[in-house]
Design a protein around this nucleic acid. Structure first.
Length: 239
DNA sequence: GCGACAG
DNA sequence: ATCTTGTCGC
């Protein structure tokens, strides 16, 4: 029983705990039920050897249910940024787009892509947020709990929270505050370029998450993990 | 009450 | 997310 099973079994186990939601109320209830399973106070992967980037592309309108989509996972060697493994899965949007319930749209197809992986990555880098979420349970949290793997989120725009603009140089960061809690960090990955929003999802700490994101983004604003998975998912749609 | 709101 | 032209800059 190899790594493939480790991911697949984890998903099956959790999926059996609840039916797929058909209403926003049911979806919120699932988030509330899974949130206690989060492990947030553990030191994140200090130096992950392999890091998986996940992203989804849509064909046509990306608002409703049933839209065709492609989910891609690209595993990189964290030290060299070389591609270790790739996986793509096509499917349909499993839920309408509702801010705060975004994960339910692409989760099934993302898990399909993860299931086909032979590698068990040391860290999942998701497109979106972790605990920087209205109910502290964004996509990175959901994926982390379902797979049992350390997971973080990297968002391109703010969702919840307030912050002061970080310094203008690469590496500068400022806390993303929600109430009196630091739910994430606004991190500048390139001099003079719009920062990204990093938050923890599962089994990771914010400091390690930011260091890893910086290491993954030596040249461009977005980490190579998301750039690679974005390209792969786009290609899979044929467009 | 009204608007804003990850991808 | 996706629909889209040209344009400024490294």
């Amino acid at each position: 029983m190899g790594p493939v099973r480790a991911v697949a079994c984890r998903f099956m186990e959790v999926r059996d705990l609840h039916p797929w939601p058909s209403t926003p109320e049911e979806a919120e209830a699932i988030q509330d039920r899974l949130r206690p399973l989060l492990e947030l106070d553990v030191p994140g992967p200090a130096s992950p050897r392999t890091v998986a980037g996940l992203d989804v592309s849509y064909a046509g309108d990306g608002g409703g249910t049933g839209t065709r989509l492609a989910a891609a996972v690209v595993v990189l060697d964290a030290a060299t940024l070389d591609v270790v493994e790739e996986s793509v899965a096509v499917g349909t949007a499993a839920f309408p787009y509702v801010p705060g319930l975004f994960a339910f749209r692409e989760l099934p197809t993302l898990l399909d892509a993860l299931r086909n992986l032979k590698t068990t990555p040391d860290l999942l880098v998701c497109d979106g947020f972790g605990v920087a979420h209205p109910r502290r349970f964004g996509l990175a949290c959901h994926l982390g709990v379902l797979t049992g793997l350390p997971a973080i989120g990297v968002g391109k725009t703010a969702f919840v929270g307030t912050y002061d603009p970080p310094g203008g140089r690469r590496g500068d960061a400022s806390p993303l505050m929600h109430g009196d809690e630091e739910v994430g960090r606004v991190l500048r990955t390139r001099d003079g370029v719009k920062p990204v929003f990093v938050s923890v999802g599962h089994r990771a700490d914010l400091g390690s998450a930011c260091r890893t994101v910086l290491a993954l983004a030596p040249e461009y604003r977005l980490p190579e993990t998301t750039r690679r998975s974005d390209r792969l998912s786009r290609d899979a749609l044929g467009t």
